[in-house]
Amino acid sequence: MTPKTTHPAYNVYLQQLSREKRLIKYGQSIIFICFFAFWEISSRLHWIDPLIFSSPSRVVNLMVRYLLDGSLWFHMRITVFETLAGFFIGTIAGVILAFFLWYSKRFSAIVDPYLVVFNALPKVALGPIIIVALGPGYSSIITMGAIICVIVSALVVYNGFHEVDANYIKVLQSFGASKWQNFKEAILPASLPTIISTFKVNVGLSWVGVIVGEFLVASKGLGYLIVYGFQVFNFTLVLYSLVLIAFLAALMYQGVAYFEKWLLKKLR
């Protein structure tokens, strides 16, 4: 162990550090409380139209009711499942595509213009076609969630493959390594941090794909509730779904961030 050296100034520094952290926490809490308090008050005093903007108390009441009758769990489950499926399928397909782009220079040169076009295309515009092709149901919505992140992750990961120091490959080749061995021993492990960083982006993207998919076609799920609430002019329902989505998306993002930390620590 390192010898314990200390200095009175160090304690002062530590105190300042924890004070700073506390101040940040306070600031965050104040914003949170002020936002909801202002929303509630302005709604009650009719500064804003309560029919359109609802109020936190109504949203909470609705949440409690739906929690008790089980419909919160029902809709949430469906949307979370679709998002996770879209996320995994899109990310894995992206990494596999990146592998083929790396493996064959010719393949990558041939498909390059198509990738550029497909990457620039707003994927949600494909929604109607996907729904017609796959039918209204889980499969189209999951496809929406997957297709929105597949190309961008393929391009990012492919770039990551290229940034691996060529000398690692030289070492392996001096032992007579095959292309697959190069990939397995050097390219893939060296690019793992890049691959994980695409996870974070993809979590957000697949939420977009799934919610838009539900807008278009679903009869259950949180995206459906938003559209339904909009159609029957029940904006408490819309805001309830929105709050739930924000909470779940943040949770998933944090989950991926923890996974990243854990994996990088393991890989050192």
Binding site: N167, K170, V171, Q181, E185, A190, L267, R268
Partner: peptide, 22 residues
């Protein structure tokens, strides 16, 4: 090579053994 280019994610033993494995 100019530098060691040991694979940072492998232990020293696994680094040394990579030749016969490849």
């Amino acid at each position: 090579l100019q530098q060691d280019y040991l694979f940072p994610w492998k232990t020293i033993l696994d680094n040394v053994c990579i030749g016969p494995k490849i």
